[in-house]
Amino acid sequence: MLKIIEVNGLQKSYGSVHAVQDISFYVEKGSLFSFLGTNGAGKSTTISIILTLLQHDTGDVKVNGLTVGKDDESIRKEIGVVFQDSLLDPLLTVRENLDLRARFYRMSKYERGAAIGRVAEIVDITAILERRYGKLSGGQKRRVDIARALLHQPKILLLDEPTTGLDPQNRKQIWNTILQLQRDTGMTVFLTTHYIEEAANSDFVVVMKEGRIIARGTPNQLKTDYSADRLVITAANHSQFRNQLQADQLEFREENASYILNLQRTTDAIPLLAKYQDDITSFEVMKSSLDDVFIQIHNGKDGSSDAGIC
């Protein structure tokens, strides 16, 4: 297992505000890594430090063996970044934008032309290369942003909420491109997102809150530890069904005239449905989602930001 990003004991404060408090994690080479947290959790500060945009107070950050704060210029060659906002020049054409950025990596004219052709094909923007960036749709802009990040064939692609503001169709298209790219090139993808379900494809997830890591694991581990599948039942006779559940000492909650029972495993629903089949008018087994995990982690199962499975 090769660690392409290693963060150890990282701390960063802005005056009396402790944005990042002694966090440690690593990212495996070739993996899809998700970094989750609400606004103000410390994600952006951590990313800015990894991108060498911000100096940290204490701790070590290494990117592909290079040390942040010492080898910054080399680190920037290793990372391609898609920022949350579109940061290319709206008045320049897509080709002009890409050509300028390619020059930052000291590519020759021939190399620049080849790089633009290559990335244009990957993200399917060949047809819009001569159009002004500012005239493109949100989805097209995002594809161009990804192309810009891929120009120098980075080892790490850092995506800071890449699909925010996009419609579902464009979101899906962007994700297909990213996952295809990861499969084809073995590139490490470091993702932050507000759409928690996007992290479901990840190999590993880290959740931050108030500058600390409060949970980490694979999506399945987190689902197991922080949430459960649910059986939602609607009964013909409400009060009778409630009494029956209470008599059987089952934990449940009522919501919109339905009864919700947490399940350890999905298959635990089978004996319950068999037992109460005469009372049930309808039922649904709901799989736990990463959204549930995220809400659970933030709202309470851990109880405090220091607890969790870190």
Partner: peptide, 14 residues
């Protein structure tokens, strides 16, 4: 103002 400079700062240019 538009934070475009971040894209430049994240590139290997002084």
């Amino acid at each position: 103002s538009t934070h475009t400079y971040l894209d430049f700062y994240a590139s290997p240019i002084k």
